[in-house]
Computed example of a mutant assay.
Amino acid sequence: MTDGALPAGTIPRPPAKSFGAWALDVLIWGGVGVLLVYSIGDVDLGNLSRLFSNSENTRTFAAELAKPDFTDWRLFVEKMWETVQIALWGTFIAVFAAVPMGLAAARNVAPGWLVFPVRLVMNLLRSIPDLVIGLLFVVAVGLGPLPGVLAIALNTAGVLAKLFSEAVESIDKGPVEGVRATGGSSLHEIVWGVVPQVAPLWTSFALYRFESNSRSATVLGLIGAGGIGQVLFDRMNAFDFRDVSAVVIVVVVAVTMIDMLSQAMRKRLL
């Protein structure tokens, strides 16, 4: 038996954290707890009782929502379909923008002088909410679905580019080195060594963002960027809560179907 080796049949001790690791955990999670307690007043959680103090209004609202009116169901379905198309085109454009950005932002593929500015652009696109981008495009090109498509495309491009770059940075170097050993160029290394490894994961990310964008496109309709959101906003302003309930049901059914389709496609790819 060598020095430090355990006798046969001995159960090893479970791994233990050092005092420094425990202290860091306490500092981090304790800080989160203190921040939550400190921000109770700032986020107005103390007035949560208003939900019950105005119970009559809540009951009236709930009663109306419980009786959806599908008289205009054709309009609701048409606008929901428009919302799905906005999300689809926004995601499609974003993927084509995110692929080169993701490769250019990966430290194991792109040179250092290129990584920093590309990551800066990615952070800029991700940091601006799609509602703000949508408002800018509404001013630029007018009301309709086009501002929604462009807003989703820009915001999603930043998100997907980051995810794509992280996927590239975690690849196995073996296939890339194999292509390099055969005399392949840098482009060949990307096409034959990188893309086959990350393509399924990239597709999964894109499908997930399409699901998310289907919901985001609904919200963009509130600022006049097309889709079912505009109908929802109009019915809310008219206090027509029965129509609001019907619109919400249409949105939930559509998003659920998109989610089921996306899951089925991911299972075939991963």
Results as ranks from 00 to 15, higher is better:
Lys17Ser: 10
Val251Asn: 02
Leu51Asn: 09
Pro15Asn: 05
Phe52Leu: 11
Leu45Tyr: 08
Val159Ile: 15
Val251Glu: 01
Asp234Ile: 08
Thr218Ala: 07
Lys173Met: 11
Leu36His: 02
Trp89Glu: 00
Ala161Leu: 07
Ala206Gln: 02
Gly30Phe: 12
Glu211Lys: 13
Leu270Gln: 09
Ile128Ala: 01
Thr2Ala: 06
Leu75Phe: 14
Arg13Lys: 15
Asp25His: 09
Phe233Cys: 00
Arg74Phe: 13
Pro200Arg: 03
Asp130Phe: 14
Leu136Ser: 05
Ile223Met: 08
Leu120Pro: 00
Val255Arg: 10
Arg242Asn: 12
Leu45Pro: 02
Pro147Gln: 05
Gly30Thr: 12
Leu163Thr: 05
Thr218Asp: 01
Ala66Phe: 12
Met80Val: 09
Ser214Val: 14
Gln263Ile: 14
Gly224Ala: 02
Asp240Leu: 11
Trp113Ala: 11
Met122Thr: 15
Gly33Ser: 09
Ala87Asn: 06
Ser216Tyr: 15
Asp44Thr: 11
Val248Leu: 13
Glu169Leu: 04
Arg74Glu: 12
Ser55Cys: 05
Phe92Gly: 10
Met122Arg: 03
Val168Asn: 06
Leu125Ser: 01
Ala181Met: 06
Phe96Thr: 06
Ile171Asp: 05
Ala140Trp: 09
Val252Phe: 13
Trp81Gln: 12
Val191Cys: 03
Ser18Gly: 12
Pro12Thr: 08
Thr156Val: 08
Leu154Phe: 15
Ala181Gly: 09
Asp234Ala: 15
Ala104Gly: 10
Ser216Met: 10
Pro111Leu: 07
Leu51His: 07
Leu75Met: 15
Val118Ser: 09
Thr256Gln: 11
Ser214Arg: 00
Ala63Gly: 11
Pro147Ser: 03
Arg107Gln: 11
Ala98Ile: 12
Asn57Tyr: 07
Val141Cys: 06
Asn54Met: 08
Leu146Ile: 14
Asp42Asn: 07
Phe233Ser: 14
Leu201Asp: 13
Ser39Glu: 08
Phe164Gln: 05
Asn47Ile: 10
Thr2Cys: 07
Ile93Asn: 03
Ile40Phe: 09
Ala16Pro: 03
Leu65Pro: 06
Val255Gln: 04
Asp234Asn: 04
Ser53Met: 12
Ala97Ile: 15
Ala264Asn: 07
Val176Tyr: 08
Arg242Gln: 14
Ile223Pro: 00
Gly193Gln: 02
Gly31Trp: 05
Val121Leu: 01
Asn213Gly: 03
Leu65Ala: 13
Ala206Arg: 03
Phe116Asn: 11
Gly174Ser: 13
Arg50Cys: 02
Asp72Ser: 11
Phe76Glu: 03
Asp42Val: 07
Gly193Val: 10
Val121Cys: 04
Arg209Lys: 06
Arg235Ile: 05
Val139Asp: 10
Gly30Trp: 14
Phe233Pro: 06
Glu64Trp: 02
Leu125Cys: 12
Ile86Cys: 04
Thr91Cys: 11
Ile171Lys: 02
Ile28Tyr: 15
